[in-house]
Write a protein that binds this DNA or RNA. Structure first.
Lengths: 224, 224
DNA sequence: ACACAGCCACTTGGCAACAAGTTAGGATGA
DNA sequence: TCATCCTAACTTGTTGCCAAGTGGCTGTGT
């Protein structure tokens, strides 16, 4: 039904009005409205009352090697992007069986969630969540505001070599909070990548990470 | 706004009616309707006029190692799933610069698109598109109906060892045709994996593949 | 006591009229 | 001639009412 949009014009060109689309395709205005709303929720167009609907400019897609060992920061700086990482929150979380198990924690242990947002060329692109146990890093509560790079933080605690566990990829949609942080609509899929960071020397699990990427901003390279 | 659904009941439990939701959250019925429609388009719920809205049963997610070298068929049979692959179409395509370039073809050459659907335990899960040049396989037109496994077809033509090129991953939404084939709603994201299959001996590009996975049916393992 | 028809309350689906914002053009007046 | 205001014709946004489908309850006749 919304095959009209596949013609893919560019820039801020104006779309036909609801009534025009309805007449042209022999449907009611409500049907045309629903189709256009879908496009709006996917982030392809925007609408202004009294004016019309317009195509958003297509933002470039950044190529990202998902399976690599290099850190996100290094990848982006190496590719010449202006990356800023901002701390959103660092809070104790309630009991989550999955995370606790991965960190070898009991229900009475405390686990912190360190949330940071990745901003590239002024655009928020991903949310990086690190789950860290207080058991492993007792000073996490005090250090909370000063954390910029997790790797730097771990090095300060004597961990030098890192390894990665099995990494899983899934798709989800942003919560309203995540929509605000990422400046995106409710129907923009997020790519969720989860794995653990392990101290290569001792085998200890340092953190569990859950990264939420805006699926429309990246082209993911998963070559082995 | 649709945070109510995150409570995640299970099975075919009935949801509160539009009016009840509207009253409870102090919004209009249209707003509640819009939120519920989103959930319906994502494939989480279904609605019956006169009865109400109900949760769909959550279908299991199949774990799939995306970066592996083993073929999809082998992966699934090894894991004990009942996999059926059905040929949808095998047609000449118009000129597409990207595909033609990858296959080392000129605009006058003919390229075929072999479309097959992967059905696991009776449920359509993925669409597998192979782009093959007539230059490389002159009998493709005649063989079109008899193709079940692409690898078997290539072996018949003397190619024995295969390699894979760079593999790219992206997200998209299904066209109405793809919705029919995959039995899914319009807002179910598809994971698109693209790469080339190369004859390891000669280095020739045999095919370009574009696989469309239903994102809600798989958990993807991208461990290196 | 039981069968059945009709009615009512509830559900989702759909539509039509209205509201609100924008723009362009023409009438009016200095 | 030019500035200003008003109106009309568009756009999207919102509201309310009615249609259609379902199930349960009740009254009525046998």
């Amino acid at each position: 039904m919304e095959k009209i949009e596949s013609k893919q014009f560019s820039a801020g060109t104006k779309l036909p009005s609801e009534n025009e689309l309805a007449n042209r395709y022999g449907v009611t205005r409500m049907t045309a409205r629903a189709a256009l709303s879908k496009l709006e929720e996917r982030g392809y167009i925007y609408s202004k009352q009294g004016k019309g609907r317009f195509l958003k400019e297509e933002s470039m897609q950044i190529q990202l090697h998902l399976t690599g060992k290099v850190s996100f920061t290094e990848k982006m700086e190496q590719a010449g992007y202006d990356l800023e990482t901002r701390l959103i929150s660092c809070e104790k979380i309630g009991f989550e069986e999955k995370v606790y198990k991965l960190l070898n924690c009991e229900p009475i242990d405390h686990v912190y969630k360190v949330s940071r947002i990745r901003i590239i060329d002024g655009q928020p692109m991903a949310i990086h969540n690190s789950f860290v146990s207080e058991k492993m890093f007792p000073d996490i509560e005090k250090e909370r505001t000063g954390i910029s790079s997790m790797f730097a933080y771990y090095r300060k605690h004597g961990h030098t070599e890192f390894a990665s566990s099995k990494t899983m990829l899934g798709i989800s949609f942003p919560t309203s909070k995540e929509q605000q942080l990422l400046h995106c609509q409710s129907m923009v899929p997020l790519i969720i990548v989860e794995n653990d960071c392990i101290d290569a020397a001792t085998g200890e699990v340092l953190e569990h990470t859950r990264i939420l990427y805006r699926s429309d901003k990246f082209k993911y390279d998963i070559t082995m």
